[in-house]
Simulated assay, not measured.
Amino acid sequence: MAKSTSKDVAKLAGVSQSTVSMILNGKKDVSFSRETVDRVLNAAKQLNYKSSLRQGGEKQNNGKAIAVFCANLDNPYYTMLIQTISNLSENYGYSMLVCDTHRKYSVEAGYIKFMNNMIAGAIYTYLPQYTDLFQKISNRVPVVVLGDKDETVTSDSVELNSTKCGKLIAQYLLSLGHKKIAYISTPISDQMLARKRRVEGVLQEYEQHGFPNGVIVRASTGNYNDRESPINEEYCAGYNLTQEILKEGDHGISAFVGLNDMVALGIMDALADGKYRIPQDYSVVGCDNNIFSRLASVSLTTVEHFVNQKGEDAFNMLINKIQHKYTSKPEILPQKIVRLEYEPKLIVRGTTGSNKRK
């Protein structure tokens, strides 16, 4: 029986050969309807056809996987990234190994030891905290980092400047007349660079506008290297710390800012349980623009930093590094570090309004 070609797939799916090529090879910067994609994928499966790019990838990966390190699976930020990377991995014939580390040294070390020669490359969805472990895996396979801007990272990276996120939120709240706000976060430390920079951005902006005491910062505590990270840590931080502030009495606060959307959801529930109205009594802002924040019943004002697109770029960087590793001679491989930075964008929804508590 003759081997199927892309022309056969195009004929069965009722599309052009170029459409088949772009869909099966995961070409960027083009889009097709879900119906068209499904027709092409079903036709390729029916004919047992694989594109030359995917066939080449399978020869290179030799049954290996892409490892994806994430801090937790409670936050939709990470699950959105994982879904994006998973879809692309499948297109290239790779399996995916999800490593849920809770930022714990022992867990991350255990994954790296377990992998041995199982993986072709790795993506960190947060800034690596343990230099020795990161170096160990980087010496073995290509690695790409998704995280805050950090010049010390010695691998390709897709970056976000969290200081800009903080400044963007602060500028918006100040424009609405919110001169005293509360900032709620999970533990903040030098190791948690994104968390530290985000709150610094808020503080810097308020100080520059003449309100050096305009931000009350509350962060949960805990050393999650020594014990299990609590379930729903971020939501619980938002809920519990907001209740704590409300019980203390009136600080003159007119708005709450969450480190991310999950913290902001906790803030919103605490305010609702206290019979406060959003945004009439308090405005609330998050960061990430996750799937929950977009729900009509939530309508959270937040910061978009393009999670799915960052996942795509990180994966494409990694595939490029893997393919160069297999197709180029080591002595002529260029030594370069690629850094791609995304600009944050404020998304205004129903949880913010002008300060009514003046």
Rank of each mutant, 00 (worst) to 15 (best):
V199H: 00
K329M: 09
E159S: 00
L133Q: 07
N91R: 15
G252N: 07
N75G: 02
D313Q: 14
R198W: 03
V144R: 08
L193E: 05
K7G: 14
S189I: 09
Q83F: 12
L12Q: 13
E90D: 13
N116C: 04
S18G: 15
S297Y: 09
A255W: 12
M96N: 06
I137A: 02
C70H: 09
M1G: 15
Q135F: 10
S51M: 09
L88N: 11
Y282P: 11
T242W: 08
V307G: 01
F134V: 01
P128T: 06
T125Q: 03
S89H: 02
C287K: 04
V257H: 07
I337T: 13
S16H: 05
R39D: 07
R218E: 10
G252A: 04
Y49S: 09
S185D: 07
R339W: 01
T163Q: 09
R103H: 10
A296P: 13
I322S: 06
M317E: 06
N75D: 06
N75S: 10
S31P: 06
E200V: 00
L174H: 04
A120F: 03
V144A: 00
L271E: 10
D313L: 12
A13L: 11
E312H: 05
K28H: 12
K3F: 13
S354F: 08
G121A: 01
D190P: 02
Q129M: 13
T101D: 00
R54H: 08
T327N: 14
L259M: 14
S52T: 11
P330M: 12
P230I: 11
D269R: 14
G166C: 08
T79V: 02
T152K: 14
K113P: 04
P230L: 10
V263D: 03
V144Y: 02
R39I: 05
I347S: 05
F134D: 05
V9E: 03
D38N: 15
Y172T: 07
D8M: 14
V215L: 00
V9K: 07
T79A: 08
A314L: 01
M96L: 14
K136Q: 15
M268E: 08
H102S: 11
S299K: 02
E151H: 03
V20R: 07
K149R: 06
L53K: 15
A219M: 06
A170V: 10
S52D: 12
I337D: 00
I137Q: 01
C99Q: 02
H209G: 10
L241Q: 14
E151W: 03
H251V: 00
F69K: 02
K136D: 08
V145W: 02
Y126H: 12
R103V: 10
K325Q: 13
F292P: 00
S31Y: 08
A264R: 11
R103W: 06
P279Q: 11
P128M: 03
S293C: 12
